[in-house]
């Protein structure tokens, strides 16, 4: 249970998410892979704030990595709400949730 172990878990989770974004053709599955990538970044930030010594001896500086994770979770919630709203909108328009059918903006 070292910083290295947490960073390796975070790196593998990020790469699984990256692979999922490329190899999936369902928009909801792509959104789920994006969530995996955001979670991996949270693990890395919290592990760094736990194991790396703070610059100043102020307790609120120690928890800055946790604050990173809190803001990432906030943005992820907004992102998933908007993404799923776009999915529903595309589904109402084309009766499909696959990216090959979502080509409205293609010239």
């Amino acid at each position: 249970m070292t910083l290295e172990g947490f960073l390796i878990i975070s790196a593998i989770l990020f790469c699984i998410g990256l692979t999922g974004v490329v190899i999936k053709s369902n928009i909801i599955a792509i959104l789920m892979s994006v969530e995996l990538m955001l979670n991996s970044v949270n693990i890395a930030a919290v592990a760094a704030s736990r194991y790396v010594p703070p610059i100043t001896l102020d307790p609120s500086q120690v928890l800055m990595g946790n604050m990173f994770a809190v803001f990432v979770i906030t943005i992820a919630a907004a992102e998933v709400a908007l993404g799923l709203a776009i999915v529903m909108s595309v589904y109402k328009d084309k009766q499909s949730i696959f990216i090959k059918d979502a080509s409205h903006l293609k010239g």
């Binding site: 699984i16 990256l18 974004v21 490329v22 190899i23 999936k24 053709s25 369902n26 599955a29 990216i99």
Partner: peptide
């Protein structure tokens, strides 16, 4: 509802 896209090999190699 969860099939692979055309970039399957590329995606696995990239990952």
């Amino acid at each position: 509802g969860n099939p692979f896209s055309n970039f399957r090999i590329t995606g696995f190699l990239l990952g």
